[in-house]
Simulated scan of single mutants.
Amino acid sequence: MLSKRKTTIRGKHVGKKIPRIKPSRARKIIRRFHLLINKRRVICRKLDLAISDNDEATCSATILEAVNSGNLQKFYEEGWKEIRPSNDLEAKMLSVQNITDKSTLTRILGYIMCEIHEHGGLKNYQMASTIGQDGGRGGDSSKLLVKWLRELPTLPSDFRALEIGSLSARNYISTSGVFDQVVRIDLNSNDAANIQSQDFMQRPIPNDDSERFDVISCSLVLNFVPSPLERGAMLKRLLAFLRRDVTTTYVFIVLPLPCIVHSRYMSESLFCEIMAYLGYTRTQYYEAKKIAYFLFEKTMNAPDTYQRDSQLVRDTSKFTKKLLIHDKPGLNNFSVLL
């Protein structure tokens, strides 16, 4: 008879071994992957290639077809076979926006694609992202969201949530029982059955309230959007996905704390002003050691922008231009522009 014992005689666990990555290593993997995706996007734009970040198979096929038809295969293969790390190609990749030569762009593209598909770029990113939400590390930001929502006077029975940048179908937002429905999307889903591979900026605008949501969770996503204007566009687009047949809806935003407290062009108060300009009221805010958590409320009767009366006049240039708030060594350049 087979033993059902879960440990050996010496007490060692015999279950499936769960991979472990130090938090610093996981952050490094995630930052690297997003860098590769962003630089690939820039190169493909320069080469007039229409690609989708959320479909790696189609993206690879599109790139290979273009490389072969454009007589650029030699340069692509050179980049693919380059010894890693290549100081030359790493430097060129970081300044790729200033490069116009097609052969150089194609070499960098081959270098990037090889890392994503042959050197564990995508696989390591998915593993690091999932482990980053390990409850044992306090990485599931949706716990705080659910806690705040449970403090509300009432919750509707058909409470619906959209989770942008979802990493697990077993996180707190999905298992708390607060929501009647949770729709999960991520650029590169690691769970095709439960998380849809989709870029939020490409998600079709809802036709009616049956396709909209009470809550949108956007945890550690905005900071990976490539440019300040694109971040602003994402914040503006959230409005189209919030229900209009209920009195109040919510947006939960999580950012690395340095984006708020160590930026030359951003602060917690300015970020809240930008959201207020879009019609939101901040109802909750919490700073952890490395993370900033915001909960914003949107009410049906709130204006989509500030009312310009004598008491609510605002200098809107702070929302459309980078304005220096802090200036000292070691600060980052995170900002959001409308």
Rank of each mutant, 00 (worst) to 15 (best):
T299W: 00
A57D: 15
E78R: 13
E56L: 15
M266D: 09
A192L: 15
E77Y: 06
T248F: 12
E287L: 13
K236A: 07
N194F: 06
Y280F: 11
Y125I: 07
L36E: 08
I195N: 01
G165F: 10
T106K: 00
L278V: 03
Y293N: 11
F33Q: 06
L229V: 12
N87I: 12
I116N: 13
D53C: 13
A61S: 11
D140I: 09
L278F: 07
T248K: 13
I63M: 07
E56H: 13
M266K: 08
M93C: 06
E118Q: 15
I195Q: 00
H119D: 15
S197V: 04
L235G: 10
F159N: 01
D209G: 05
I30F: 04
A128N: 03
Y293F: 14
K92R: 02
R244T: 14
L152R: 03
K81P: 01
A288G: 14
L144D: 05
L122W: 05
T100H: 11
G136M: 01
T100I: 14
K39F: 01
I29Y: 08
L187T: 10
K46D: 00
N223Q: 13
L323H: 14
R237W: 05
I21S: 02
N332G: 12
R45L: 06
T247H: 11
F213P: 04
A169N: 09
Q73L: 12
S60G: 11
S157I: 02
R244N: 13
R137K: 05
L49T: 04
A50P: 03
S263G: 02
I37R: 00
N87L: 14
L222S: 05
N301A: 09
Y285L: 12
D186T: 10
P23Q: 13
P153F: 06
A233Q: 15
T281L: 11
D209V: 09
Q284F: 06
H262R: 15
S95W: 02
D315I: 08
M93R: 00
V215H: 02
L324A: 09
